[in-house]
Design a protein around this nucleic acid. Sequence first.
DNA 1: AATGAATGAGAGTTCATTCAT
DNA 2: AATGAATGAACTCTCATTCAT
Lengths: 200, 200, 200, 200
Amino acid sequence: MSPRRDVSEERKSQILDAAEAVFMQKGFENARMEDIAQGAGLSKGTLYLYYNSKDELIVAILDRIFERDFTEMENLDVTGMTAVAAIWQFVAFATAETSAMLHLLPIAYEYLSLAFRNETVQAALKQYFNQYLDILLPLIQHGINTGEFRQVDAKEIAIAIGAIFEGTIILWVYDKSLVDPIQNTRTSLELLLEGILSKS
Amino acid sequence: MSPRRDVSEERKSQILDAAEAVFMQKGFENARMEDIAQGAGLSKGTLYLYYNSKDELIVAILDRIFERDFTEMENLDVTGMTAVAAIWQFVAFATAETSAMLHLLPIAYEYLSLAFRNETVQAALKQYFNQYLDILLPLIQHGINTGEFRQVDAKEIAIAIGAIFEGTIILWVYDKSLVDPIQNTRTSLELLLEGILSKS
Amino acid sequence: MSPRRDVSEERKSQILDAAEAVFMQKGFENARMEDIAQGAGLSKGTLYLYYNSKDELIVAILDRIFERDFTEMENLDVTGMTAVAAIWQFVAFATAETSAMLHLLPIAYEYLSLAFRNETVQAALKQYFNQYLDILLPLIQHGINTGEFRQVDAKEIAIAIGAIFEGTIILWVYDKSLVDPIQNTRTSLELLLEGILSKS
Amino acid sequence: MSPRRDVSEERKSQILDAAEAVFMQKGFENARMEDIAQGAGLSKGTLYLYYNSKDELIVAILDRIFERDFTEMENLDVTGMTAVAAIWQFVAFATAETSAMLHLLPIAYEYLSLAFRNETVQAALKQYFNQYLDILLPLIQHGINTGEFRQVDAKEIAIAIGAIFEGTIILWVYDKSLVDPIQNTRTSLELLLEGILSKS
DNA sequence: AATGAATGAGAGTTCATTCAT
DNA sequence: AATGAATGAACTCTCATTCAT
């Protein structure tokens, strides 16, 4: 009797994939468990073997999105670069990653909205942001220490950079014809970095 | 015989106020018409005398938010200022206004999410952004023309500024303890403007 | 001060006209008091000054339909005719009248359906039928007495004639392309009368 | 492991039975889905697993009524009879069947009313009538061909017979104390056939 | 006499969740 | 592990009726 392979993880990921797709198309509330089940090629009842409620599914999706981000971000190696180069390296990486996530935007904004009334979501977003800071802050601080940058507050710079990332995407949602998320993010960051560099 | 006073506008605003409050607390989908009616001190049936559906109510709220913005923005007078001063004037104004709107954020992000599947919302956001550009672009262009700013693309600057506004707020939602929307917006904009000024 | 003309009857008829039209188009249940009010050029509130409820309106319509029938039927003068001629005279009259009422059929069948659970309607239909018999029976009896007809039961003939009237219309509703209510009623009655005549 | 039995057909008929009963008692519009569910011993939600709307239920009832009629009518065997005997055979059959359906009259008249504004219903009635003609017409034509009947138009006779069937029932609804649907139908048909027979 | 704003009970319908198989 | 029939609470929307003006 061969040991039965544990299909649990496979099923869960099947379900999350389907849920993600349906959530994106219809939003959390209008997504029906039936749709998700169908998308996953499972029955409604089976869904509940893996996730106890729709809310749990919503949270699981959130977790998975941020888990993906984190893992990839941590592999960044910037040793031996100038601060500016390191930041651009980070930017390149974050840009690539954000591009890949662009299709999840409807979900992302719904989470932002949810954060105001759901502490789990709030905590997840907080952790995400801190992870971001943990990676970016040392790079900036390094630049300040070496005199590459003016005497600025590293956290303020990190926030400015983060704001440009997030804000440019919003403007793109406002008007997709006037904003190019990648191009405009790059330009804005260039101007910002210009303002930080030591004037030699 | 006094003619009956037209209560239509009064009722509508009563209803929108209540709807705004309930939407903020529960989100669009979880808001019940009953709650809104009660909040407005009216009966459910009366709601439908003024708005034909929940969707219509959602759109009406959106319209009212942006209408408020526009009217106030247009009263801005910057004649005779330097470009930097004018921009700061604009920033001060936009900051004040945004602060006043901060309580509407849960709604705002839900609209952003909705925009991906609702053309009415999409159009409203687009118009909003263009109104923003219409006000800010001339100020920037003026700075470029007078040599106050480097030879940059005015639209790119406007987008950078807009991104910092919107993005800083998102970061604040991510972690309210690490970000101060007003302060960080100001600092980021300072750095940005620093990068634009002509180096004399 | 001239005595104000009593507009009561005028209003009532205005309302019944409108109600009839709306009932025909939508059926009793789907007809909205609002529609009727609008059709009558009055306000919903005014409707209730003249009829206390929708049900009352439904009954009033029924009454008016049958009142019309009766008044006109009673003016029939058949003195000095043969029984067959008199019956044809009656048929001609009833046919004309039915033709004029054809547009009320949707209402009529709804009344038939209502009759099973509403005694007022039941009573009205009964009275209508008896009025019909009161007019037709003497004509038939006269034919029997004079030997023009075979020794048949007058009531049974009257019922047969009535059935042909009502039934032909139903068949016409079943298939308007196969049945011509006036023509087929006439033919059927001819065959029937043929079966009643004394064979000389 | 016994395969789950398909209860679909069972449920549907359960539901239609209950719906028929409720429709008869209250009419289509006043029948509440809740009542039907209860009558079927099911929950309201379960109803919607089998019928997507109240309208669908109304149409399904109509279909079932006529389906019953058709199946039974087609089994009629009249080979080797005289036309008159065959027609009486048909009449006996139709009478029996109509008697069994008498309790559905409130529904039937509501359908007649509905037919004026609903094409599905219209089509069903048309088909029903044509089925009736398909069965009766040959019997009559046979009688004409063999000289048993006068040279009449078979369709006109069929319509006369049908009218007597339908019309007698209406008169019975008008006044149940004066009309006996079975007896009066029979008598009227006798008179009619009398008028058709060849005079030898 | 006339209005029409307001009501609120009630209807159809949906869908997350359960559970016997 | 998997199913899908069944549930019923909850929701949006309708409309006959009322009543202050």
